Amino acid sequence: MKIPSSIWTLLIGIVLTLVSIWYGQNHGLLPTAASDEAVLVDGLFNSMMTVSTGIFLIVEGVLIYCVIKYRRRPGDRQDGPPVEGNVPLEILWTAIPAIIVIGISVYSFEVYNDIGGFDPHAGHNAPMAQSSMTMPGSAIAATLSDAQAQDPATAEVRNTDQIPQHQDAPGVGSVAPSIGSSPDKAGQPPELLVNVTGLQYAWLFTYPETGVTTGELHVPIGREVQINMTANDVIHAFWVPEFRLKQDAIPGRQTEIRFTPKTAGDYTLICAELCGPYHGAMRSQVVVETPAAFEKWMQEQLVASHETLNKAVAVNPADLSPDEFLAPYTKDMGIQPEILHQVHH
């Protein structure tokens, strides 16, 4: 009994659909989802992978079928039959991709909007908190003043009058002041604020509530983190693949990114913007840990900072410049003198 072609088409369609859905959800191409926002991005990526797998299997399947079925047989010297245009087929293969592209575009915009990427009324009217900068054992310090180190790498661009986006920029594009805040948390203050400065070729993290500054970012699970960032020299980009969010750090401007960590672990912060010859080495660690472990780490930094500053103020001769005085401490931390000089100036 010969099975009708319509039945074969239906069966093949069902198999292709099931295979596409399975692979779209089980491709294993993405790293660990370490933030609440990652779920939205993963859903979009998986949907695109499902559609792409289905299209790939259909196109390649038809090509292989045609190559086998309509190949030239031995002894066949005739020309192929003339085939004219098929208007319904042309409409079909134009309409289906158009519908797919429009659907993905709408879905992409919804995801972008859900993570706070678009707000036509966005405006940051509250000035950013000024922060003092201390020098813990694992931190980078720039200079000493009144027994505390200030934040010269970012002080000039932390004033709201000097940051055009801080007042009137819409939340769109690479200079967006805000991305990552979900609608249910819109308008609410973040649970943890961190000031970030990018410079060739390092990241500085300052916790304004405590004044601690470090060379690696520590964040607690379950608390929304707001990163206020700028750059000291050229454009850099704050990107942690496991968080599925990226934002540019721009000289003279302040940008913002929010995320809520959910999976403990050590992740790599990568500069995703070509920023110079050593761009590939501009990496830092992001440590996602339990709230208790985070508080313990913060207390350790405060203790180390207090001890180091007391020692520094006690022994600093008046004739040494900040760069010269801090050199022994930064050497122990593996910080190059050139980096310290850039921070200071």
Score class of each variant (00 low, 15 high):
304 A>F: 06
264 A>V: 07
331 K>G: 11
331 K>W: 08
333 M>K: 15
284 S>G: 06
322 P>V: 03
261 P>T: 01
315 V>D: 13
281 A>D: 13
277 P>M: 01
325 F>H: 06
314 A>M: 03
321 S>H: 07
298 M>Q: 10
333 M>P: 09
311 K>N: 07
288 V>A: 07
294 F>Y: 10
274 L>D: 14
259 F>I: 00
290 T>Q: 04
271 C>F: 10
269 L>Q: 02
274 L>G: 11
271 C>A: 01
310 N>Q: 10
309 L>S: 08
288 V>P: 03
304 A>S: 13
284 S>T: 02
289 E>W: 01
260 T>G: 04
278 Y>D: 12
291 P>M: 00
316 N>L: 05
318 A>L: 09
278 Y>C: 03
279 H>I: 14
279 H>F: 02
312 A>P: 10
258 R>T: 14
311 K>T: 05
329 Y>T: 11
290 T>F: 04
271 C>Y: 07
324 E>S: 12
319 D>E: 09
323 D>Y: 12
296 K>M: 02
298 M>C: 12
276 G>P: 04
285 Q>N: 15
331 K>A: 13
317 P>E: 00
262 K>A: 02
311 K>L: 05
296 K>I: 11
316 N>D: 14
314 A>Q: 03
311 K>R: 15
276 G>A: 06
333 M>H: 13
275 C>G: 05
